[in-house]
Amino acid sequence: GEIPLDFTIKHPLQNTWSLWFYDNDRTKTWEENQIELTTFDCVEDFWRLYHHIKQPSELRQGHDYAVFKQGIRPMWEDDANKMGGRWLISLEKKQRNSDLDRFWLDVILLLIGENFDHSEEICGAVVNVRGKLDKIGVWTADTSKQQANLEIGRKLKESLGIHGKIGFQLHRDTMVKHSSATKNLYTV
């Protein structure tokens, strides 16, 4: 039968993205546990990767995935993140089976599809699988760009269908306090 034209070509992405995995091996340092698994620069390679790996809900607690623009490490210390922050979406344990995986996929699709007006401010996204609260963070480069960060937050809420408020935290505040005690610079 006929193959749709869209299935015969590769669709390039605006950016090349890296998938990272945080291993949580107690014998290693935090940095050593951050593993850059692979990169992808077209839609087809993203889907091939996505279908190959476990969903966040299947990961053991203490593990993370991160999807960041190539060259940006998923850590505060990276030059691209030093002046930045994150929109934080917290999920209760009961949401692990209903919302975690679809929120994570929708966040990645927003990122790689450049669906924010201010996509240039996006560094990447992280999903933390934890005991009490799972977290998804969308990291941006410059906390002083109010309009850009607010646009990103509103787009996230709208696309994921989140009804409650979400907050934006500076990395330098999160560094010194646990995320639940960190003040929000912005809220939408």
């Binding site: 193959i3 869209d6 299935f7 669709h11 390039p12 992405l13 605006q14 839609v43 087809e44 889907w47 929708d106 699709l109 927003l110 790689i112 599809g113 450049e114 669906n115 996509s119 696309s159």
Partner: peptide, 18 residues
């Protein structure tokens, strides 16, 4: 400049591409 933008629905439609 120009930017390559894909909406969610289009990305999802390519999910089953061989």
């Amino acid at each position: 400049g120009t930017r390559i933008v894909y909406e969610r629905s289009y990305l999802m439609s390519l999910r089953q591409s061989p």
